[in-house]
Design a protein around this nucleic acid. Structure first.
Lengths: 350, 350
DNA sequence: GATTGAAATGTAAGCGCTTACATTGGGGCT
DNA sequence: AGCCCCAATGTAAGCGCTTACATTTCAATC
């Protein structure tokens, strides 16, 4: 009949109903549809009901790209983590997502494989995709990335690290202090011969700070930190095992092996068993992170507990506020605690 | 001077350069910019060089939303997994992402928390976001979801399960067969008293099929499957421990406890140790999935190995082909294998 | 009943791309 | 020289929304 009618018919054939279709069915303009959906108070109750009914009838869902383009915001927050293939970031990320979800945001995750160049690329990628904010892990990255983000006015927060002077807001813990505390505890138990297994320290402030913390404690006790063997291996159980074997094969093997994370520690633990060593009688082993593994290893691992979930939620809240333009955002240092489970004990005198 | 000049100046002030800016600088039309970026062969070498130089000079990145809106495709593939907070899906998802990346696609992950309603919502959400294809876990969901997806012409693949007759293409393994094989192995070793710890079977075909497989093997051996205690608990180490204790507290405790996944099995294993039971002398325990946990538990877990990475990559390839319109897609059944590590042995005669 | 201002709604101009279609400019051919 | 054809490029119409601004509606007031 009228032009509206034929328009409706045209649209019906398409795969998805658009805002125009809804407007036709409800007999109002598209602006009213938009308002009903995004700002219901601005629409009269009667109209709202009609619109909602039309939406329902057609099964209308706003097209995300169109919405993002028109409003120049996406309701999406990005996170770039080194890898998805391990538990370290999983729990924190899950919490991050939960908190975001409660505020109506969606999470977009990318991984960098611990590669700075890849991380930079992913950052640009996510920004091009219009993320409203970004969470990054750790603080180690080129200054031009921070500049890029600042120029694009994309709020960011860095997590898993806390440093007083940082180019970005951070929500995390002090890796240095935490590892120093754990090492101090070992020293108090009487250990004097240390070995360290660390993740690669290049481009990874967490790993670097942890080793620094351990060495600082050792130096503080009057021992020579440069005599402490530090083995760097990539993140895996097998590598932890191998590194442990190398450490124990030295002329004067350590009485305690400090591992940069739980995965390496669990590898070391397994290797110790294979070598016929009883932990902690023959050698002590410690981890870091307190992921699930630490609890179920045998013996259960003495490690540093990191408040992953708390950190994830806090990071999300900071970003949500930043997006809303609330305040300058707050830097947050979260506490870590030493969890003594049974792989750290007084060294057997020898 | 001229209008183009002032346009350029206007644009320079904005946070991001647009395709118009690049066109101005390169002295060509926007169509040429688009072609240079998306289909370089269609542009002369000379022009291409000029355009690329302009892109470089301005640091131009195409706006994702605009691109998606105009082209009605996003270069994004979605995946909805039950939860991010565990290792079962992590490795497969990582591989899925790697393969997608190699084909120029980006992964968008959402989680459903094992809730069918939430999953449906996430599916609609991702579709509204314009994903070009979708990977879903398992086959259990309402038929209307498949219809919705079909209507919207969004290619999907289901993974982690394989069933002959399925509403969607699947890339996975036969949970029934795998668990049946493992149970048959237990029977061959002489076990006759079984206990089963399963994840909740409602809305979860993997869990259901695994239990079915175990019971089928038991029935096949002439034993009464309905006498086998099956405890359903949610996914966690602690729940596995608790369920194990319940099973062993029965008048006639099982000689072997089949667990629906490795996490439950590890929980059972820990509880056994706490109860002073030696595995596998006093009781056998098996897992399923062969995630990292299985290897590092003590004793290392006898479990069913699932080719996670292979599955992830295969699922990605199926979707990439489907998006490109290549073929009807192929259903793929991947093999599982029993990994005997030391928690399954002949029962102590009693 | 006329006046007024706020509330409700409509109009239409973009947002930054892609792409069908139109135009231009050369070779290669007769 | 004239013609044809194709490669290279330009023109401009959307894609499906949001939102500034304009218009209409209507209850409250005098």
């Amino acid at each position: 009949m009228d032009s509206k009618g034929s328009l409706t018919n045209d649209r019906r054939k398409r795969s998805s109903p658009t805002i125009d279709d809804v407007a036709d069915v409800a007999g109002v303009s598209t602006a009213t549809i938009s308002r009903t959906l995004n700002d219901p108070e601005r629409v009269s109750e009667k109209t709202r009901a009609r619109v909602l009914a039309a939406v329902d009838e057609l099964g209308y869902r706003p097209n995300f790209s169109a919405k993002a383009l028109a409003a120049s915001k996406t309701g999406t927050v990005g996170a770039i983590i080194p890898t998805m293939d391990n538990a370290i970031f999983a729990r924190g990320l899950q919490a991050f997502q939960e908190e975001l979800g409660e505020h109506g945001y969606t999470l977009l995750v990318a991984s960098s494989g611990y590669h700075p160049a890849l991380e930079a690329q992913q950052i640009r990628n996510l920004v091009a995709r219009g993320v409203d904010a970004l969470m990054l892990i750790g603080t180690d990255r080129e200054a031009d990335i921070y500049q890029f983000l600042a120029k694009r006015a994309v709020p960011i927060v860095t997590a898993w690290s806390y440093r007083e002077a940082n180019e970005a807001l951070c929500v995390g813990f002090d890796n240095f202090k935490a590892m120093k505390a754990l090492t101090t505890r070992s020293l108090a138990l009487g250990h004097t011969r240390f070995g360290i297994i660390s993740a690669p320290r290049a481009h990874n402030d967490r790993a670097r700070e942890r080793v620094r913390g351990a060495l600082a404690a050792i130096a503080g006790a009057g021992l020579a930190p440069d005599l402490v063997p530090v083995i760097e291996v990539k993140y895996s159980v097998a590598n932890g095992a191998e590194a442990f074997a190398a450490l124990m094969g030295r002329p004067l093997p350590p009485t305690v092996v400090l591992c940069g994370n739980d995965v390496l520690a669990v590898g070391a633990l397994g290797k110790a068993r294979d070598m016929g060593l009883v932990v902690p009688r023959d050698v002590s082993i410690t981890g870091f992170d307190d992921i699930e593994l630490a609890e179920i290893s045998y013996p259960p691992l003495t490690t540093v507990h990191v408040p992953h979930r708390q950190m994830g939620r806090a990071a999300a809240r900071v970003l949500v506020d930043l997006i809303a333009g609330i305040g300058p955002g707050t830097v947050q240092e979260l506490p870590t605690t030493i969890i003594e489970r049974g792989t750290l004990a007084t060294p057997f005198s020898d």
